[in-house]
Amino acid sequence: MTSAPITTATNFLAFLGLVSTLLIVWRQNWPGRRRLFIVQSLLLAALAAIIAAYAHRPELFLVAAIVVLLKAWLIPRILGRMAAGTPPRPVTPGRSAGLSLLAAGGLIVAAYVIMLPVTTVSELPTEGGIPLTFAMALIGLFVTVTGRDVLGHILGFLMFENGIFGLALLATYGLPGIVEAGVFLDVLVVVLILEGVVLQIRREHDSIAVDRLRELRG
């Protein structure tokens, strides 16, 4: 089966993005997960640049640059600042990543099933990557759900956002500029606010483990 170079490129990049996502699920070590998130963001920036070149949408180059700046540099830095002082691994080790990976696999299947109506009617050369990026978003949510501390939740949320961004790139060649700008600003503000909150929680409770939130139940 021959396919256009654009299809090969986008499919490959989306595939690599999904692999990085799965690796984040697998890794337990926090600095490692943060580095993988940088890799994922860089892959998406590359995806944006390729689509910008293919679809003659110069503003997508700008978007790619912003992704690099924001998600591969600024936000990881803030995440590193937040994590300063926490042990690199969760306090309660021993939980294997096997079950999580199995669930992630299930989510990938679900993503293909859910996106079936879209991919069957789509004529885009980039349609092959659509279920992959959607799976990235779902797995991001899954990381949020299973996160054992606040950092896990934030990372999951950012991965979810990355997945949505990739999905928008492949399905519509990027969102209108104003929406894109709004989303970037939202993500930045969320991370900044959460930084404050995390520091506050740690100061008050000496821990950012989610289990202890149970004590707040009314």
């Binding site: 679900a110 779902l138 949020t144 989610v210 939130l213 149970r214 707040l216």
Partner: peptide
């Protein structure tokens, strides 16, 4: 439904979305 576990609440969102 209100168990006090933040993970469970997030799981509700994921499930609802799916």
């Amino acid at each position: 439904l209100q168990s006090g576990s933040a993970n469970l609440y997030l799981a509700y969102i994921l499930l609802a979305l799916l």
